[in-house]
Design a binder for these strands. Structure first.
Lengths: 125, 125
DNA sequence: CATCTATGTTGACATACGTCGAACCAAGTC
DNA sequence: GACTTGGTTCGACGTATGTCAACATAGATG
């Protein structure tokens, strides 16, 4: 623990947690398992503060943002940290410490997956 | 309160509650107000049971389903009714009684609105 | 090493939420 | 009218959630 850098973490552990989820909501009734998976993602975005944090990160230049850049959402700093952790646990964000600051970035595959869920009619029957 | 019928309620109060919401999450940081609105919808889908019910209705023939057709999700009937009410309050479903049965149908504009929220890059800058 | 700044973690608290059984309402049937 | 079936509402219960203040940790800096 002297010179080991914390950097990359290139393992795709996060992406495989969330990317392959479920068919569009309109295609067929969700199974219990699919519903559990998908609900976890929706739930993570089901809080105004988390939604603002997520949007702040997602819209930030380079697709990533330092906590210090986005923590102005009207709640205390511990609360911000708490919500960022939840978003991370849900697989929506990843974090990385670079020097003094911690940067969060969105997991793009998740947005795509959730977007597909809400597709009206993906394949004309 | 003697002969006033409860029937139609044709006012488009529901649709205007949810349809025009917010820009894509990736476009700019959400305001507090936008976050409130959008979070309400995500929250409604943030429960496995509700997600199954919603999916069941959305995927049902004709875009609508009787409660009796979709209430097999592992919880009691009052709980099903409770969740359907929540989905309705969130503007995701509408209900209508036809004779003995009550039919729920999805509000299509909502799916579209939420789908847009999750768009990665709607307009190439 | 002392110390300062930036984040995360813990513990406590009030509130919201999901769930059920019981009671209730609405239509249809006898 | 009484009984049956479908659905909602009510009241209660346990658990999860959002929030904060206080404390802990990680780097940077002198």
């Amino acid at each position: 623990m002297s010179n080991t850098k914390v950097l990359p973490l290139l393992e795709p552990e996060v992406s495989e947690t969330v990317a392959p989820c479920c068919p569009p909501l309109t295609e067929r009734p969700f199974t219990a398992e699919e519903a559990e998976t998908a609900a976890r993602m929706f739930k993570a975005l089901g809080d105004p503060v988390r939604l603002r944090l997520f949007s702040a990160v997602a819209s930030h230049e380079g697709g990533e943002a330092c906590v210090c850049d986005i923590s102005d959402v009207g709640v205390s700093q511990p609360t911000v940290s708490h919500h960022l952790k939840k978003l991370k646990d849900a697989g929506l964000l990843t974090s990385e410490r670079r020097g003094t600051w911690v940067y969060y970035r969105v997991e793009p595959s998740v947005l795509a997956a959730m977007g597909k869920l809400l597709t009206i009619a993906p394949a004309a029957a």
